[in-house]
Design a protein around this nucleic acid. Structure first.
Length: 357
DNA sequence: AACCCGCGCAACCGCATTGAC
DNA sequence: GGTCAATGCGGTTGCGCGGGT
């Protein structure tokens, strides 16, 4: 029992749109609007197109103020940051980039940005691999031991130097203001993700975590507002409309869509928690003994992260609760992209061992 | 010149969600 | 509360183009 088709496929034209069709659709919508019914619209204009197709054409191409191509460095960072934060929710990401469509961003990510990241990842890997090898040779020579670097004995051939992340089972409860802020931010991010539709695999733990997170004595609006203010930046230029939207309802999605996400802040939050911990459990499930690998992503996080990671990778992290973030609609995608990158990377290593191309 | 291959992008497909009844 | 149609969304496909052989 299949799904009923949205239109009569036999009488519907498919494929690229002609300029005439574009003109018809554009002029009609500019004059009359969509009429709230995309299905009926093509018949009204006399287009042999599916309503969905018309909608897509309008949204992705004919709509005014659409930008195509030429993504800036800033936009790159926003896309990457949001992808890491919320996964492949392109419509939400697109809402943060005026003039960009979800389709455009999706294509850009799949064809360029992902590769760009992998390129950086690879570069970093090679440079550190070089350094590591030199050190290993030096060490082996001084110890007079086997030529096999001690670090590499238990490692996958394609993952020559992955730091091990120790994931703690419970949030850390330190009392320095920095730590408080850290845990606070972590909980904020987590809650934001939950509100965006994420969920946590260890729902049983969630209860415990909620009671453990003394920073959040209750679930009051003020707390949510606090976390929202922490994680969302409302640009002054559009503050009135955005604030209207915020005041009109408590729908976090709407708030998110109608506001500007503080990318840097979000990154800071995640990075201070050891953001890559998010992936750890899933990667471990996938059989990667050394899941902590974000090489090439450092540019998203800045020098601080790049440096901190080296220091922190053996420490317990306060992001432990979110390390188990899984499941639809977005959380699992962290793992997916990480998995994708890992697989891509491993594959390229198989083809070009040692990075020689 | 012909063919192959990879890339970028527009469009399609089908599932999920929403809203009206 | 259930059903169904419309809409939204993300993944995937297919085509055109340019570069390489």
């Amino acid at each position: 029992m299949g799904r009923a088709p949205c239109c009569d496929k036999a009488n519907v034209k498919k494929g690229p749109w002609s300029p005439e069709e574009d003109a018809k659709l554009k002029s009609y919508i500019e004059q009359h609007g969509t009429g709230g019914n995309w299905i009926a619209l093509p018949q009204k204009i006399g287009l042999k197109r599916c309503g969905k197709s018309c909608r897509l054409r309008w949204l992705n191409y004919l709509r005014p103020n659409i930008k195509h191509g030429g993504f800036s460095e800033e936009e790159d960072k926003i896309i990457c940051s949001l992808y890491i934060s919320i996964g492949s929710r392109w419509s939400i990401i697109a809402a943060q980039l005026p003039g960009r469509t979800d389709n455009d961003i999706k294509n850009y990510w799949n064809t360029k940005l992902k590769k760009k990241l992998l390129g950086k990842q690879r570069k970093e890997h090679l440079s550190r691999r070089g350094k590591s090898l030199k050190q290993d040779v030096k060490r082996s020579a001084s110890v007079g031991d086997s030529m096999v670097p001690a670090d590499n004995i238990n490692q996958s051939p394609y993952w020559p130097e992955l730091p091990v992340l120790a994931v703690t089972a419970a949030p850390l409860m330190h009392h320095s203001s920095t730590q408080e802020h850290r845990i606070d931010s972590q909980a904020s991010m987590r809650r934001l993700l939950v509100k965006l539709g994420g969920r946590f695999s260890d729902d049983d733990h969630v209860i415990n975590e909620e009671t453990t997170l003394h920073q959040f004595p209750n679930d009051s609006y003020s707390t949510d507002q606090h976390l929202y203010e922490q994680t969302v930046y409302v640009p002054s230029s559009s503050s009135s409309s955005t604030m209207d939207a915020l005041n009109l309802n408590n729908n976090m999605d709407a708030q998110f869509v109608n506001s500007q996400y503080t990318i840097d802040e979000a990154n800071q939050h995640m990075l201070h928690q050891g953001q890559s911990g998010i992936f750890s459990s899933e990667l471990q499930e996938m059989g990667y003994s050394n899941p902590q690998r974000l090489d090439g992503m450092e540019f998203l996080y800045g020098e601080e992260m790049a440096n901190n990671r080296a220091v922190n990778h053996c420490e317990s992290i306060g992001w432990a609760d979110t390390s188990s973030l899984v499941g639809p609609p977005c959380a699992s995608e962290y793992g997916v992209i990480q998995q994708g990158m890992l697989q891509d990377y491993a594959f390229s290593e198989m083809r070009y061992p040692g990075g020689a191309q």
